[in-house]
């Protein structure tokens, strides 16, 4: 069929009002977003938020209760499931390897299931990519958790997917292995693979993802990590002086780009600013002019973690919430 042309140029994923319910338990509800081709998209959320269920739904394993989606330009309906599955691959939450088979035997089976051309070469390449070339003949039961995870990753790479779903790929990995996975994701991004990454690691999402969505049964927010920070937190400068200022109001009142201030301890001041690049030099000049001894002026840096905790930390746990509906 028109395998090549399908959805050229359109988004890799587009999801409209998608919901999934198990009986009367809501796994996720009214989720809409788009992911561009070649984008690394982070999907964050607390335990039970519906991340895995979303991946399974987009991966055609379970049917949504309502809403629609297009995967690689193909409408997500049961009769398209096989075509969709040919273009994606999923690394599930648990590796699910055949433990009695060797690493190479596991990969061989999946290379055949995807009908990849030149399977030997593909398998060797995938194993090199996850740095497991020397463990090809090991029985999977003898591998550690982290190594099994890497075999699962290699398995997901065999078919050269357009869209790669990674469900918590670095859960349980040591720092070196985690960095290796991060570098791999970077390389895949350069090759133009679209990556849908669910994770609990906020620094991971911040470092790797072009955009992130935060889910807690419903979608709470979506955007570039930097944008989310700016949307949620007023920008601010913290000023620390050696001694308390005699008349801070007088100093901070008429500064350009400063909207207000409040004290932070006896010698600290937090200025709400619209543009730190304008406010910081002006504040410095005013403080020096007033004869104050300035210890530091810095713009307060909010991390994605602050955004996440702000949005999710005050929620009721996703499970209770879903149960109540």
């Amino acid at each position: 069929m028109d395998d090549q042309d399908h959805g050229r140029g359109g988004p890799a994923l587009s999801v409209h009002g998608l919901s999934k319910r198990f009986g009367n338990r809501v796994a996720f509800e009214d989720v809409s977003f788009e992911v561009g081709r070649g984008e690394v998209f982070g999907f964050l959320g607390p335990n039970g938020a519906g991340k895995t269920t979303t991946v399974r739904t987009l991966g055609t394993l379970i049917t949504p209760t309502s809403g629609s989606a297009e995967i690689a330009g193909i409408p997500l309906v049961p009769q398209n499931a096989e075509r969709i599955r040919r273009r994606i691959s999923i690394m599930p939450e648990s590796p699910g390897l055949y433990l009695r088979l060797s690493v190479a035997e596991n990969l061989e089976c999946f290379a055949d299931l995807y009908r990849t051309p030149d399977p030997r070469e593909r398998i060797a390449r995938a194993l090199r990519t996850v740095d497991l070339a020397d463990r090809a003949d090991d029985v999977c039961a003898s591998l550690s958790k982290g190594l099994r995870q890497r075999v699962a990753l290699a398995r997901a790479l065999l078919s050269d997917p357009q869209i790669l779903f990674l469900d918590e790929p670095t859960a349980g990995l040591d720092p070196v292995a985690t960095r290796a996975v991060h570098e791999l994701i970077d390389r895949l991004r350069r090759r133009g693979v679209t990556i849908f990454l669910t994770t609990h690691r906020l620094e991971e999402a911040e470092r790797l993802c072009d955009r992130v969505a935060i889910l807690n049964t419903t979608l709470r927010t979506i955007g570039r990590p930097g944008e989310l920070r700016d949307q949620l937190f007023a920008k601010s400068l913290t000023v620390t002086t050696l001694a308390p200022l005699p008349d801070p109001d007088h100093i901070f009142a008429d500064l350009p780009a400063v909207d207000g201030w409040h004290p932070d301890g006896s010698c600290g001041y937090i200025l709400a600013v619209s543009d730190p690049a304008v406010a910081a030099p002006a504040a410095t000049r005013a403080l020096v002019g007033a004869g104050a001894d300035v210890l530091s002026i810095s713009s307060l840096h909010h991390s994605l973690q602050d955004v996440y905790l702000e949005l999710v930390g005050t929620d009721t746990p996703a499970d209770e919430q879903a149960g109540r509906r």
Binding site: G59, L61, E82, R85, R86, I88, S89, I90, P92, S94, P95, G96, L97, Y98, L99, F110, L113, Y114, R115, A152, R155
Partner: peptide, 12 residues
């Protein structure tokens, strides 16, 4: 064994 999910994500 938990191997069914990866198997069913393939085009089989």
């Amino acid at each position: 064994q938990g191997t069914l999910e990866p198997l069913l994500t393939t085009p089989i």
